[in-house]
Design a protein around this nucleic acid. Structure first.
Lengths: 210, 210
DNA sequence: ATTTTAGTGTGATATATGTCACCCAATTAA
DNA sequence: TTAATTGGGTGACATATATCACACTAAAAT
């Protein structure tokens, strides 16, 4: 059972009744690193609030391709599940746990109910959409205007911001996230190494660009 | 002065007080086709509700490049201006009138006020975000996974849905919207002509693909 | 009527990226 | 200890797109 204090720390400024409602109605779930939490086209039955760990959100192709968009961290909600819940739609994104995670699953029937009952929930939903809308804009900016070298740098910087300057990813991992091939990433990383931006190791590299 | 009836038709299911508040506080503005309504980085002073005409939303590059994302039609609001208003941020998009337009400009100070006062406004804001978030996801899907030929088809289909099967755009217009060059579009359109998808004219073409 | 401009067609070439082939080294499994 | 697997390096080549050059023609301006 999740202590109320965890909730009030992660989600400050909510009405007291909202914390209680969540503790009563939401289910605390766990998932191992690597688990797929949500697939494109899947019907959503509950909203997802992250309590512990990190989730990665992807756009998914029909042919198996993936494109990484943004991270979800504790204290954040998956906007797509709020969408789906509220309007009974299907997921347009792929969500994967990158670390072991804990999250609250709130059955859809409470979405609309709480929107009516709790002003702070309403604001939280708006804030969630707003911030994710902005993340998507950034992603579009990258893909529409930048070549792979700059997109790779942007990608690495997002990683470094999340997990620190030691990047524990293989070239293949990165290639998958950027919907390109391993060879392309290997060559671009090699260039970064020549430029003195990274130190390369097997299975990882260090971001040392100032 | 905008008749209340126009408002109730374009924005059904709002509280009566909200219509009155808008009629009292919003300014009805007009703009000619081609006008830039919002630039990236610009501070937003009012929310935009479309009354008449069509607006195009773009992501804008530092170097002058543009990428078309979606249309805004009467009865819709520009999500970005709701963002900016509420959280005092800057525009992350470029908005242009594609036809002569009329829109309501609502000064930012009413955003938060009305979120508190009118449940229907709150829902409207959420609905606006949700639908635009989904538009952005579609855009990402296109640029992350598709080559220019498919993106061009997707682009034309959006146009046809908005304005009908006679596409009054020059190759250069399209190239600008897709952040590519005129030659690329000319060649791809030529292929579509060979495939029997379009009939080409000067300054326009007809979409006849079934 | 003549000139100018805008829209389009198209070859040639450059560059970015995708794909295939194959090698080597580090790690893991047998 | 040996074999198999995984991560990575790199050449060769294919393809998509960008860029430059220039020609042609319809429409607009003079």
């Amino acid at each position: 059972m999740l202590p109320k204090e965890t909730l009030t720390k992660l989600f400050p400024d909510w009405e007291d009744g909202l914390y209680d409602a969540i503790l009563n109605e939401a289910e605390l779930k766990e998932a191992k690193a690597g688990t797929t939490l949500l697939k494109m086209g899947q019907n959503i039955k509950s909203a997802m609030l992250v309590i512990e760990g990190t989730i990665k959100l992807y756009q998914e192709d029909e042919t198996g391709g993936e494109y990484f968009m943004y991270h979800l961290n504790p204290g954040e909600a998956c906007a797509v599940t709020l969408v789906c819940n509220y309007h009974h739609e299907q997921s347009q994104v792929l969500a994967k746990a990158v670390t072991d995670i804990q999250y609250l699953a709130i059955p859809i029937e409470f979405m609309e109910k709480w929107l009516n009952e709790f002003k702070s929930w309403h604001y939280f939903v708006i804030k969630t959409y707003r911030s994710r809308y902005e993340e998507l804009l950034k992603t579009i900016h990258e893909i529409a205007f930048k070549n792979m070298d700059e997109r790779l740098e942007f990608y690495i910087l997002k990683y470094v911001k999340q997990f620190g300057a030691i990047v524990n990813l293989t070239h293949q991992d990165i290639a998958n996230d950027l919907n390109t091939s391993r060879e392309v990433i290997s060559r671009l990383l090699k260039k970064m190494e020549h430029n003195g931006w990274i130190i390369m190791n097997r299975n990882s590299f260090d971001w040392i660009k100032k």
